[in-house]
Simulated scan of single mutants.
Amino acid sequence: MQQYLDSIKASLAIRNYFGAITIALILPDICASVDSDDNKTSGEKYCIWFDKYLAEKFTELFKDDNQSHIIFGSNECYATRCSFLHQGTHIIQHQDQTLKFAKHRTVGAVSFMSLKTDLHSPRKNYLRTSDILFIDSNFFCETMISAVESWMYDIKVEKYKLEKLAAMPNIHLDFHSICNFSK
């Protein structure tokens, strides 16, 4: 799993935001698959994983009504994943089957931007208008990395899951690593 997290970090460092966002969007699928007894994932499993590890990062307490409001929910993230990866678009409103289960009013599109903010910056890492959510690319990717690291900590004693992680693909950079791989 670390190879995916490192790839996101490397992509962010060179401002390859498409690469970083693409990998970040598939991480909940990978984690849900590892968690699954049958090694399969689904939109539902993706959303369950998101709700457990990411939901609080995309919820904000508004002062005017002292209520928590979902800024970016699991269904929106899954719809973004589907639209971004399969249609090459930021428009998610056509993902009816996914969005109909959302627990809040969803937006019609999710766009990524580069504000170059620190993950712990007091500045906003997103802007939600009536129908578009803009999320800072660095914030999104770093938040996803943090969530996966928390998940990895949670499964650290689950041998079966660790074996699945160990079997994930690596990119071999030289022949020496291939020789070690075959042992």
Rank of each mutant, 00 (worst) to 15 (best):
C82E: 13
S33G: 11
A109I: 00
L119I: 10
Q3N: 10
Y160C: 00
I171Y: 07
L12P: 06
T22P: 01
N138I: 02
L85V: 15
I70Q: 09
T59G: 01
K52I: 02
A167E: 13
R105D: 10
T89L: 11
R123H: 09
F58W: 11
A102K: 12
W49R: 02
I132M: 13
K103V: 05
F72T: 08
T98L: 15
D65T: 01
I23G: 09
L25F: 07
Q87R: 12
I91Q: 13
S121I: 00
A20P: 02
K124H: 07
P122C: 04
N125V: 01
S11V: 00
I92Q: 14
S150C: 08
I14G: 01
E76H: 15
F134P: 06
G88C: 01
Y4C: 05
K40S: 13
E163L: 08
L85G: 14
M113H: 15
D37E: 07
W49Y: 05
A24V: 00
S121T: 02
D131I: 11
S33I: 00
A20I: 00
T59H: 08
D131N: 14
I14Y: 03
Q93P: 00
S121A: 12
S83E: 15
P169A: 04
G73R: 15
R15V: 00
I8F: 06
S36R: 04
C77L: 12
A32V: 01
E142V: 02
G73V: 05
R123L: 14
S36E: 04
F18V: 07
D96T: 14
F18Q: 07
L61E: 10
Y126W: 15
K103F: 05
I92H: 13
M1Y: 04
K124N: 11
S150P: 01
Y46D: 02
F181W: 12
L173Y: 14
S11K: 08
G43V: 02
F101K: 06
H90R: 07
D6M: 02
L5K: 11
V34C: 06
A24S: 15
H176T: 14
F134R: 12
F62A: 01
V157W: 04
G73E: 13
F58L: 00
E60C: 04
F134Y: 15
